[in-house]
Design a protein around this nucleic acid. Sequence first.
DNA 1: CTAACTGCAAAGTGTTTGCACTCTT
DNA 2: AAGAGTGCAAACACTTTGCAGTTAG
Lengths: 146, 146
Amino acid sequence: MQHTPSPESFRELCERHGLAVTHQRQVIFHTLFAMHGHPSPEGVYELVKELIPSISLATVYKNLKTFEEHGLIREVSLHHRSARFEINASPHHHLVCLRCKAIVDVPAEDVGPIQLKKRTPSGFRVKRYHVEMLGFCGECTKQIEP
Amino acid sequence: MQHTPSPESFRELCERHGLAVTHQRQVIFHTLFAMHGHPSPEGVYELVKELIPSISLATVYKNLKTFEEHGLIREVSLHHRSARFEINASPHHHLVCLRCKAIVDVPAEDVGPIQLKKRTPSGFRVKRYHVEMLGFCGECTKQIEP
DNA sequence: CTAACTGCAAAGTGTTTGCACTCTT
DNA sequence: AAGAGTGCAAACACTTTGCAGTTAG
């Protein structure tokens, strides 16, 4: 999944996931995988439109959602629909439930220090860091495997 | 800053930051600090409205922004305005520029493993973790201190 | 043929803005 | 008095939805 998959494997992928192989879906998928970085829906749309001028933004959104639901892509920072503010002044990290989106603070002392083994690329100056531990909270774990 | 500050200290805080001490601001601030967890603007608004029924949501937003700009609170997950998707299948972490919001991937091998020193609270089951290193990219560093 | 998918436009969210009015300083 | 802050409504940006028409299986 590291480089652009062949048309063949996309067909297989869709079969495996029970998805229809439409032209739009195929182009969106390949465009997405050819883009590096962290593309936005708009960004994907702009590029796809060059190949399929009639495509609609809604289709791009729908497909991104589908891909995400099937684990083919991932949203970079899981955002709750609205902004969330942090008042806690003491340094801490987060446990985030992938199911119910609950956020639980973990004091920084409870997490070992992280080390960067290489120099940060391109002169990036790190001010602070923050660990997000993703998983399932007690409640959700129960509901998944009762 | 861990528990609700006294009215006195809020006045001082405002003075220190050159902010006017308005009733609304004071109530928003104290409400915010009395809430645990990771309140949303709406959530703050709902509570503040009980004390100041005439307050507007816009005022809450403006104050949250002001507080954030002065470092009194922090947004939990810095979200770019639109969603960002990740295609990169190999495990990695992120460098995030606080100024231009650029995201740079850092291979997981370049970051030492993190250890939880205590048991996760309330049966949380961690599936994976993700380190966000926040700072300033080379470009922005130059522009801040030329 | 049926279910899945697309395109369109309209409706939703969450957030920001412009402006007149009102308070702090 | 001047500048900062407030409330309102309108504007915004991003995302979702309903639906009729199209396409894949």
